[in-house]
Structure formats: C-alpha cells, structure tokens
Amino acid sequence: MVAGLVGELGVDVDDVASPTTSRSTLRQAVPGGFTIDDFHIDTDAATATCPAGQMRRR
C-alpha cells in the first residue's frame, strides 16, 4: 500500500522503504521543491498528506 502512495508522490520507493537509506541521501526533485520529509505518510490509514494539507487515500 505505501509503495503505491509513495510512487504516486513521485518518490523513489527504494529511497523510502529501504532501512539502509540515510535521510541525507534524499533530495528535492527541483530546486526549492519538497522532499519526502515534507509529506505525512500514514501507513495504518493508507494516506499521504502533502505540505498544502491535501490528503490522498489509497
């Protein structure tokens, strides 16, 4: 479920799901853009919320 939500956000699933990935390796897709840390992903509710507060439910 999370992989689908994260994929829809345009984030590489391996960057988020891998326990060996350091947060410092994640970068903005565009200068001044957002990183995964700017989004709230609730795996229990299967939702992702963007910095603007819009929620997507899987």
Rank of each mutant, 00 (worst) to 15 (best):
A29H: 10
I36K: 00
D37R: 09
P19H: 05
T47P: 01
D38A: 15
T20M: 11
E8T: 06
T20P: 00
L5V: 03
D38N: 14
S24I: 05
R57D: 11
S18A: 12
V13D: 03
R57N: 11
A52H: 08
D42Q: 15
I41N: 03
V13R: 03
G53S: 09
M1Q: 09
D15E: 11
V2A: 13
H40G: 13
F34A: 07
R23H: 08
A45I: 05
G10P: 02
T47L: 04
D37E: 13
L26Y: 03
R57S: 15
R56G: 02
D14H: 13
C50E: 07
P31Y: 04
G53K: 08
G32A: 10
A29S: 10
T47M: 06
A52L: 06
D37Q: 12
P51K: 06
M55F: 00
R23L: 10
V6M: 01
V30N: 03
G33F: 00
F39D: 01
G53L: 06
V13L: 09
V2K: 06
D14P: 02
V11T: 10
V6G: 00
L26T: 15
R57H: 10
A17Q: 11
P31V: 02
P19A: 12
S18I: 01
L5I: 09
V30M: 07
A45Y: 04
D38K: 05
A3S: 14
T25G: 06
R56W: 05
L9V: 07
I36N: 01
T47A: 11
T43Y: 07
A46C: 13
G4M: 07
F34M: 07
R58V: 14
T43A: 15
P19F: 04
T47D: 04
D14V: 12
R23W: 12
D44H: 09
G53P: 02
P19K: 10
R57V: 15
V6L: 08
D15P: 01
A46F: 12
R56V: 14
D42E: 15
T20F: 13
A52F: 05
C50L: 05
S22T: 10
R56T: 15
D14E: 14
F39C: 04
P31W: 01
L5N: 00
V16L: 11
L26H: 14
A29T: 04
T47C: 09
D38M: 05
D38V: 05
S22C: 08
G32T: 10
D42P: 02
A17D: 12
T43C: 12
G10W: 03
M1N: 09
A3P: 03
A45V: 06
L5G: 00
D15C: 10
D38I: 02
S24E: 09
D44M: 14
R27M: 07
G33Y: 01
I41Y: 08
T43M: 13
D38R: 04
G10L: 04
A48H: 01
R58L: 13
S24V: 04
V2M: 07
E8G: 15
D14F: 13
S18P: 01
V13Q: 04
D14C: 06
A45D: 06
D44I: 14
D12V: 07
R23N: 08
